[in-house]
Amino acid sequence: MASVKEYIRERFFPHIWCPGCGHGTVLKSLITAVDQLGLSKNDIVMVSGIGCSSRIAGYVDFHTLHTLHGRALAFATGVKLSKPQLRVMVPMGDGDALAIGGNHFIHAARRNIAMTAIVMNNRIYGMTGGQFSPLSGYGKAATTAPYGNIDHDFDVVQLAKAAGASFVARTTTYHAPQMVEILKQAFTHKGFAVVEILTQCPTYFGRKNKMGEAPDMLEWFKENTTPIGSQAKQKNPSLIERGVFVAEEKAEYCTEYEKVVERAMKGRE
């Protein structure tokens, strides 16, 4: 592959993420996927929201739009529909994508507009210092759940499927080679693609929940996830499945809008 430095804004490194934060691994895998696909940097727009995850946009040498908390997909929809030839990547945190941005997430999936939503799920609000997120889970510890979290989480994959995303996948930072392959599929998918990446926040989620250091959290991903439909899953239903859950052809929004324009122009004659 070409040097990673071809794709980053080197002057901002070392990056701001904490030691062991999984977001850097997502950045690396994303760059690797872009490089392996041979995409042109001028054709890529990365749109991010607010939070630790959103800082990823500052580090890549693409067109980058660092927006508002939760709104990345709404901005990205404007970018994509107005210039459909662009490839749009939208990395978001779990709180960013699914709490404040939950509605935008559902409706971007429903429209099936071609872009890649990457949910960097570390189950916590890191930038503000460790408050529980919608994906922290019942019983977990966080600074805003000092007596234990009573909020239930939900399954991002199930949500994305129900909302109509035509590509849905999940992987972890431990499974970096799989992450690269999944991102490559997502980037070339003609429709709304959701990639959930379980990533570690050793500073807050890990420490608050006594999960050890970053390598221990990766160990957890290794032990508690399994390929979709594996025998292990049948034996132990609590395992989290990894892989591509949905990859289907479905009318894509920008393509459909071209047809609207055609019909509107015909009506004018």
Partner: peptide, 13 residues
């Protein structure tokens, strides 16, 4: 290359 792929600091080649 697993070290390179997983390194969150992009510091290994």
């Amino acid at each position: 290359r697993l070290c390179e792929m997983r390194c969150p600091d992009l510091s290994i080649t």
